[in-house]
Write a protein that binds this DNA or RNA. Sequence first.
DNA 1: CCTTGACCTTCCAGTTACTGGAAGCCCTAG
DNA 2: CTAGGGCTTCCAGTAACTGGAAGGTCAAGG
Lengths: 148, 148
Amino acid sequence: MNIGDASERSGLPAKTIRYYEDIGLLKPGRAENGYRDYSMSDVHRLKFLQRSRSLGFSVEECRQLLSLYGDTHRESADVKALAEVKLGEIDRKIAELESLRETLRHLVHNCHGDARPECPILDELAGSPEAACGGAARANDEVSPSKH
Amino acid sequence: MNIGDASERSGLPAKTIRYYEDIGLLKPGRAENGYRDYSMSDVHRLKFLQRSRSLGFSVEECRQLLSLYGDTHRESADVKALAEVKLGEIDRKIAELESLRETLRHLVHNCHGDARPECPILDELAGSPEAACGGAARANDEVSPSKH
DNA sequence: CCTTGACCTTCCAGTTACTGGAAGCCCTAG
DNA sequence: CTAGGGCTTCCAGTAACTGGAAGGTCAAGG
């Protein structure tokens, strides 16, 4: 299939797909007329890229992730190690998204309208997940180390 | 506190913090020596930015999200509407992360080492969450609309 | 008092990851 | 056979940083 279809199926603009080819993330075939020719496997790679990029992974991280199921010369132990590092990052991202969701939910349900600048729920939730409830390093409201 | 502390507390490099000020995402005070002076509220904003950016929200989206609890002139209904749109996006992102996690987990546990290019689990999981299991629009392995 | 080193300041240039637009070829439909 | 849409390359512009130079500030040590 050519780039328009690949674009539609992957959710990536054609421009971006060509760019990914430029930087070596995939190498589609070429038809006789010079048009790029994408296989389903190419589309899978593209879809994978679309997702990972939209979730905050850098292109280089995506390249690593793609190498997980693209490189047959890789040792199984390496694959496992890299995959597990990434699994940890994914779990962290999920936790942060859930915390962000809570922030917004509280905003909608508890802090409706006026007295927002002081809202203590947001003050806490905007912080780190652990620090909000029972953190030992909870500072007083206006900390000033080396302030004069 | 000055920028080094704000950087440490927010997890953002000082360079980035100055950049965010340039584009109007926060406006810290200034000490008499000309140094920027960050309040806890500034740090909260920064931490919020750090998170949202790392989760794939654009700077403009972050600006909107920040306006949710920064702008006292905003109507409560507007806040709710925008927050709910963003809640939807967050849920989608969480679902995609979970799908990505499954992809990697399968990679580690089921497809160890050699026969990766053909791995059907990955072929499916690299696709969209619905399309993988029981999708009506599941195409055959090598689709070629307008191929000759 | 003076220097050393770790901060901070601004400014300008470079990088990453796209994104838009021009100029031109290919291909189907009227 | 020409109009249209889709494809090609190339080059320039944008978004979001990132690095580095040149210089001011400040607490500590000799």
